[in-house]
């Protein structure tokens, strides 16, 4: 640790968030349970939040963190509405598979 101290640059954080975003996207493509798909959407939102904070620090600007705050609020609202929709759909149908939900009519 004395000779060579490697400090993670913003690029490291951005690459990590790119990997996280891709994992979330693959999860949305692969999984068929609507709840798990929602969790994968949360993964992607968190990757974007990490990007905002990293770029905000690299540019030395507080606006990145302010936008992350709003993203969190909107994500919370989105989860609440999405879970409400899932609950009301699942009450009528038994299966938990988005492939069965091919029509909007209740």
């Amino acid at each position: 640790m004395v000779g060579l101290v490697v400090v993670p640059t913003p690029t490291w954080y951005l690459v990590l968030s790119a990997v996280l975003f891709s994992i979330g996207a693959v999860g949305v493509l692969v999984r068929r349970n609507p709840l798990v798909m929602f969790m994968c959407i949360e993964l992607m939102l968190n990757a974007v939040n990490l990007t905002f904070v990293t770029v905000g620090r690299a540019m030395s600007d507080i606006d990145g963190q302010a936008i992350v705050f709003f993203v969190m609020v909107v994500a919370a609202a989105e989860v609440v509405v999405g879970l409400g929709i899932i609950v009301s759909i699942m009450r009528r149908r038994s299966g938990v598979n988005v492939d069965d939900l091919s029509e909007l009519r209740g």
Partner: peptide
């Protein structure tokens, strides 16, 4: 493109 822009954190 990541340059110092804002007033600092």
């Amino acid at each position: 493109a990541l340059r110092l822009r804002g007033a600092g954190i």
